[in-house]
Nucleic acid binder design. Structure first.
Lengths: 340, 340
DNA sequence: TTCACCAATGCAAGCGCTTACATTGCCAAT
DNA sequence: ATTGGCAATGTAAGCGCTTGCATTGGTGAA
């Protein structure tokens, strides 16, 4: 037998086939200008003839770079991050990078674990959602010198670079709009703000707006809940059962709002005649409900593209990651009406 | 200086710290039962003290295994695959595997490229969507001996193992239900069936049902379109502009159906009084429209979990991947009514 | 003609880990 | 008391690639 097992072709095979050293072949692939023109041609021919593809592990090991960017997102289950992530991946792909995605289920423990996993797989850079996480995680990142960009959030004073929008201001703007419609009793459905800084900031934006407009604490009925459509529906029913039910129910995101819409329908309440509902994120869901959801439009596409470009630059040229604040805007679609 | 650069701890560091060989440390991590109990303890303590994490590249290289499963899905942009994928990842994680996701944008060229990328990154197994792809891709997979499981589809005679459901039969069942409501002119909105075998099978199921029930070709008005909510809406308007407009519009998936719902509302058509609409997949969207979408429920969760378990088994024990057919069922929610 | 220089290429040392094989030492069976 | 067997551990050979340094040979300047 010439060959016992059916191996993948290696650099050596290519080198043998054209009578050069592995070093030359490697250079043909990674620094073509450091090689003679005819040699280059011959080697590339051999490469494609053999169907050679470099072994990722070996390359990672020898070069210490993987051309991979990792992303840890809270969930893949709904569309909140999907659109931005899709663009993120497309942009990376065009730059010759691969995306590794992991999701944490909104659990900081799992997130930390996933970050470590991605790092140990040689991710050259990381995309994370939001600012808030344990100091040990940031220490880990620093010790690895891993370029890390935070997204879906932006803070002025933030110690880590982020690309996103101002959750607080965006929700404040929406809240102003709601108040302008004459609503005086506001319900708010939020994901747990202690474990989710975007949720916390949005809630803060709402609170600040209420206060600024001279409302008392009682004007706000807060329900904290989970992340699905169903939990949104449940929270909405809870709010409607209140003695002094709110005339407008604002939701921390579109998924919760969609649930609220469903629950309203189930209760026989007309939106926005009987009750107004608002969301946040402007995902596909928001265009699909009847009437369309009044929500905050978030620049998913721009965010994904800019984040990818920034990380690629940081990884390739070592350029610094700089924070960027993208604009949001309130989108009126129909679920917000005048207070009854 | 004791150390010039700020290196990650290596196996050697751990070994030095507890006075054993790297082999022993390696065994502690990979085959704890082949090591003395006290040694194990000491080593694990050192591991966590140093914050040691194995270098992925080195491990991949030495062991030829990565504990990684790759998945190439058509899109992350909507929820069609998200739920199944989330479960898939969770199950993998619990088995100590990592998921690498890539999306192809429904483009076979990109899919092939992504498959190669994942393979070269040392994915131990692959999850792909649907059966149809170029023979060269399957040859590549075979030459790599890469355990590959197809999902979201199931075929009896299929040459490759798959776990999913029978798209043809499921759509046929839904079509029977539609016909049972008295509809005689059916519109169908489909993604391009030439590039998507699930779409093709669903269409085939519908056609077969019409034929079985003695309908002529004219009973079906087909519109082929893209993948977003908006394209669904557009296709729906197209169907409503037909001289002999259909009384029921069936859609190849829930996203298209949601678009159709929106368009119907825009045209002032009451669903299901004026026109019936059906979807396929039963994703979150289907519960959010008003009225709820009548659709085909697909076992997302079971599919993701079983697929993960099967791949883990195949990769770990070399056990064969066997096809599995999961049940679907028609879910009546309200968008399907009697023909006007 | 000589020589300094440079482009093109080869040599070989790792990168950090796994694992086949070798070694050690202890216990039970003879 | 010997010794075979076995569990625990060590030794060291790669895995396939990149890259610093060495070597080669051709070029133009002196």
């Amino acid at each position: 037998m010439t060959k016992d097992t059916h191996h993948q072709p290696t650099l050596q095979d290519v080198a043998d086939l054209c009578g050069v050293s592995t070093a030359t072949v490697s250079r043909c692939l990674n620094a073509p200008d450091r090689v003679g023109k005819d040699t280059l041609e011959r080697v590339l021919a051999a490469v494609s003839a053999l169907g050679y593809a470099p072994n990722f592990g070996a390359r990672l090991m020898a070069a210490g770079r993987s051309n991979t960017i990792g992303a840890v997102i809270p969930t893949m289950e709904n569309a909140i991050f999907a659109q931005g992530l899709q663009v993120f991946q497309d942009t990376l792909r065009q730059a010759g990078f691969t995306l590794l995605v992991a999701s944490s289920g909104y659990d900081p423990k799992i997130e930390a674990e996933q970050i470590r996993t991605l790092a140990s797989r040689g991710a050259d850079g990381l995309l994370l959602i939001g600012h808030e996480r344990d100091a040990s995680v940031y220490e880990f990142l620093a010790s690895r010198q891993l370029p890390t960009l935070l997204a879906w959030a932006y803070r002025d004073k933030a110690p880590h670079p982020s690309i996103g929008f101002d959750n607080t201001a965006a929700m404040a703007e929406l809240a102003e709009t709601v108040l302008a419609h004459g609503h005086r009793r506001i319900g708010y459905i939020s994901a747990d703000p202690t474990a989710n800084d975007r949720a916390a900031e949005r809630l803060a934006g709402l609170r600040a707006t209420l206060q600024r407009n001279g409302f008392s604490q009682d004007a706000l009925s807060l329900v904290t809940t989970g992340y699905g459509v169903e939990t949104g529906a449940q929270a909405f029913r809870q709010l409607m059962a209140l003695p002094n039910r709110p005339t407008a129910v604002m939701c921390g995101n579109d998924v919760l709002a969609a649930g609220a819409m469903g629950a309203a329908h189930g209760l026989g309440l007309k939106v926005p005649l009987d009750v107004s509902i608002t969301g946040f994120d402007d995902i596909e869901l928001a265009r699909v409900t009847t009437p369309g959801l009044t929500t905050v439009h978030v620049p998913h596409t721009a965010m994904g593209a800019r984040a990818a470009a920034a990380l690629v630059a940081a990884v390739s040229n070592g350029s610094d990651l700089i924070s960027e604040k993208l604009p949001t805007r309130v989108v009126q679609r129909g679920t917000l009406g005048a207070a009854p």
